[in-house]
Design a protein around this nucleic acid. Structure first.
Lengths: 143, 143
DNA sequence: CTAGATGCAAATCGTTTGCACCGAA
DNA sequence: TTCGGTGCAAACGATTTGCATCTAG
C-alpha cells in the first residue's frame, strides 16, 4: 500500500471511530506514515514543529497511543533510548538493526509465519505476534 | 552447564578480573543463576533481602551491570515494565512470552543460527546477536 | 454548543549516579 | 591499609497524566 493510500486509510478509520481530525493530528499521522526511518517520538515531534510550532510532545505521544490502540502503528521498544515506530507496516516483522549507526531496516522473509508456527508447534501457545531484531554491523559501519 | 558449575564459573571469572566477592554480590549472582523465571531486578532484590536485609536495589543493579559487561547475563528489555534477566543461558535465544500471565519460556530451535544467517544473507550485515520474542497465550491462559 | 483534543507543567517509574562509609584482600 | 563495594538519597529521561483552554463536528 502506498503512502497516500495508507494515510487515507487511517484517516477514514479514525473518522469511523468518531475521532476528531485536528490539523496537528493529521500532520503527525502523515509524518508517521511517510517516514521510513522508524522515527522516535521526539523525531516525529521535531518534524511537526516546522508546520505547527506550538505542538507539544505530549500530543505526539497521545496520537501515537491512538494509532497503536487501533493496530495501525508498530512500536519497537528499546529500554535505553526509548521507542521507535513503524507506521508503514504495522504488523510484526523482523528488523535488521545496525549497532554502529542505529539504522533500522525492515525485512520480510518468506514463510516467516510458518517458521514461527513450526518453532512453537509443541509449546501449546496460541501465537499473537512477535518481536524479532537482528543486531549487527551494516556494510558501511564495517569499514 | 548445571547451576553450581555456572556459579563457580562466574565467581572464578570475577576473581580473575580482580573484582571483590562480597557476600551480597555472591548472593545476587546465586539468585540470578538459579532463578529460572527470568527475574526482574526488583524480583532479585526481594529474594536477596531475605538473607541480606540491608542490601539496596542499587547494588543489585550494579551487580547486574557487572555481569552484563562480562557477557554472563542476557538482558531482556521491555520498555514498559522494565527488564528481565537470563543468567542461565546468557547468549541470544528466542523466548516464548505469555501475554496473559507474563511467563517467559526459553526455546532453543535447532539450526536457528543458520536461519538467521540465511535471512540476512543479502543484507551485507555482520551479525552480532538478536532478540526474538514470540508473544501468545500459554495453554493455561487460553482457558 | 459540547465532548473530545491540545499543550503546558507536574508526576511517574525503572534505572543510574554521587558520595560518605565500609570491608575484602 | 587501601581501593573497590555498598547503600542511601537524589538525579535522570522517556513517557504519562492533570487540568484549564481551545476547537472540530
Amino acid at each position: 500500500m502506498d503512502t497516500k493510500k495508507r494515510l487515507e486509510h487511517i484517516i477514514e478509520l479514525l473518522r469511523q471511530q468518531g475521532k476528531r481530525l485536528t490539523p496537528q493530528r493529521v500532520a503527525i499521522i502523515k509524518v508517521i506514515v511517510e517516514d521510513e526511518t522508524h522515527p522516535s517520538a521526539d523525531h516525529v515531534y521535531t518534524q511537526i514543529k516546522n508546520d505547527f510550532p506550538t505542538t507539544s510532545l505530549a500530543t505526539v505521544y497521545k496520537t501515537i497511543k491512538l494509532l497503536k490502540d487501533s493496530g495501525e502503528l508498530l512500536e519497537l521498544e528499546f529500554g535505553d533510548d526509548g521507542s521507535r515506530y513503524d507506521g508503514r507496516k504495522p504488523h510484526s516483522h523482523p528488523h535488521l538493526i545496525c549497532t554502529g549507526c542505529g539504522t533500522i531496516i525492515d525485512t520480510e522473509p518468506e514463510n516467516f509465519e510458518n517458521i514461527i508456527a513450526q518453532m512453537t508447534l509443541n509449546s501449546g501457545f496460541k501465537i499473537q505476534g512477535h518481536r524479532f531484531d537482528i543486531y549487527g554491523l551494516c556494510p558501511s559501519c564495517q569499514k
